[in-house]
Design a protein around this nucleic acid. Structure first.
Lengths: 117, 117
DNA sequence: TACATATGCAACTATTTGGTTGCATAATAC
DNA sequence: GTATTATGCAACCAAATAGTTGCATATGTA
């Protein structure tokens, strides 16, 4: 489980998960495009995602297809969110806003939905 | 959002979240007991959890009470899990087991539910 | 007041981590 | 067979991180 949290702690790896969530089965070279990291850099990130079981792979000839596995993320949610809380949170955008507003944060200007990195 | 993932990436901080999920309103010194880290170490961890909005605090005299905030964790789940997938996953322990079984992991003996760290 | 309790801040260190370059291996195309 | 494409492995480096020690501040209590 430690591998899952470590894997999610990097913005490049989260970007890769976003792309695989958008379209599964992409290869390493496909996933490299647009990222300002070398191919080997991306390769190492994908390896970490694999070891965390967040990404499952399938060899097709010389190509390695990558797919997102949502199970570990689901386990994170169920760890700290009770069933009844999940029910409440599902509809309560207001609660989120309330917690944001009353926080003594330095820059309370930024909205919550802006720029997931 | 980056702060949330970084905060969750450390086992000590996850242990703190577990304790606050178990009982809210604990102080720094209460949370120190049992952890093999100094008070200042725990303090720095709690500060990171605060900045990630995973923990909300409330001053009571000279005591600082700590409470868990589940909202950021809920947002993680909704990022990579589609609504229909959430519905399926809710009842499908079997899917999780299947994915574990067919994984090419070195030590496939360990069960999924054992020892969240 | 004097003392104990509860927390915060700053400097320093060892380890981890993200990224690189260079070379090796394997499958497809000509 | 030769060239090209797709990926993997190892060594190296700079930056971030977890942890420490020491001191400062503020709130209760005798």
């Amino acid at each position: 489980m430690d591998d899952v949290f470590k894997a999610l702690a990097d913005p490049t790896r989260r970007e890769l998960l976003d792309r695989l969530h958008d379209q599964g089965g992409q290869t390493l070279n496909q996933l490299c495009s647009g990222l300002d990291v070398t191919r080997q850099g991306v390769s190492k990130h994908l390896l970490q995602l694999e070891q965390a079981h967040l990404v499952v792979t399938l060899w097709r000839g010389r190509e390695k297809r990558h797919y997102l596995n949502p199970v570990p993320i689901y386990e994170i949610a169920t760890r700290w969110i009770n069933k009844f809380e999940r029910g409440r949170l599902d509809g309560l955008q207001s609660l989120k806003n309330d917690l944001e507003d009353c926080s003594d944060d330095s820059d309370s200007t930024k909205s919550t939905n802006s720029s997931l990195t």
